[in-house]
Design a protein around this nucleic acid. Structure first.
Lengths: 106, 106
DNA sequence: GCTTACCGTAAGTCAACACTTACGTTAGGT
DNA sequence: ACCTAACGTAAGTGTTGACTTACGGTAAGC
């Protein structure tokens, strides 16, 4: 149930903005916090949550802590989501056939 | 930004349990609430959130309200996630090459 | 028509959590 | 050695939201 942490992590809008910024490449905390409407410590706390969800991982470069996207949590989340995707497609097909049946019976 | 609602909806554990039950097929509210550690009105409120996120849709059968998985929200969420999946793979490849380079230079 | 399932909604409560400011730590520059 | 930059963490606060009980509405059975 590791995808649970990933979902709760990505549920927060600020955390999503941080995560989306990392999509363009690795960034230190200061760069990530710049432009965001919250303080830098808030960004650190968000990064901690993202890290525990295996969505990001950090790497120290001297005084800087450079964060980047971690494929692990992303992969687990995608795998969980694909479960539903398949059954949703099946349900969709069934729905179409049922509706088509109604249309034909008119 | 429709995926935002889907993420906040799936962030809640109880809502995930409801959603996962719907994976096995359409269910009325009573069946979904049975076995869950929360009251039936709570399940109704959760279903409302899932519905607004386009993750489920309901259909009235007399007094019953039968809920089933809606592919719309699921598709939007998957599309958003795939954005990161691609860049995460690129980053992963770059990381592997960088690490391999270090290994060779030893 | 009356009762009984089956639901959704309103109102209120309590805990989680997203913020803030203040502080401690580490690394680099002069 | 001192200062500064770049962080993480601790502690406290306000608000969101996940629950409860109570109530109103609709459809089916007798």
């Amino acid at each position: 149930m590791a995808y649970g942490n990933a979902l709760t992590a990505l549920a927060d809008p600020t955390r999503r903005r941080i995560f989306e910024r990392l999509r363009k490449g690795p960034r230190p905390v200061g760069k990530l916090a710049a432009g965001l409407p919250v303080s830098r410590p808030a960004v650190s706390q968000h990064l901690k949550v993202l890290k525990e969800a295996r969505l990001v991982h950090d790497e120290r470069e001297g005084a800087r802590h450079v964060y980047s996207i971690d494929p692990k949590g992303l992969g687990q989340l995608r795998a969980w989501l694909d479960q539903f995707w398949d059954s949703a497609l099946d349900a969709f097909r069934a729905e179409v056939e049922k509706t088509a049946g109604k249309e034909n019976s008119k």
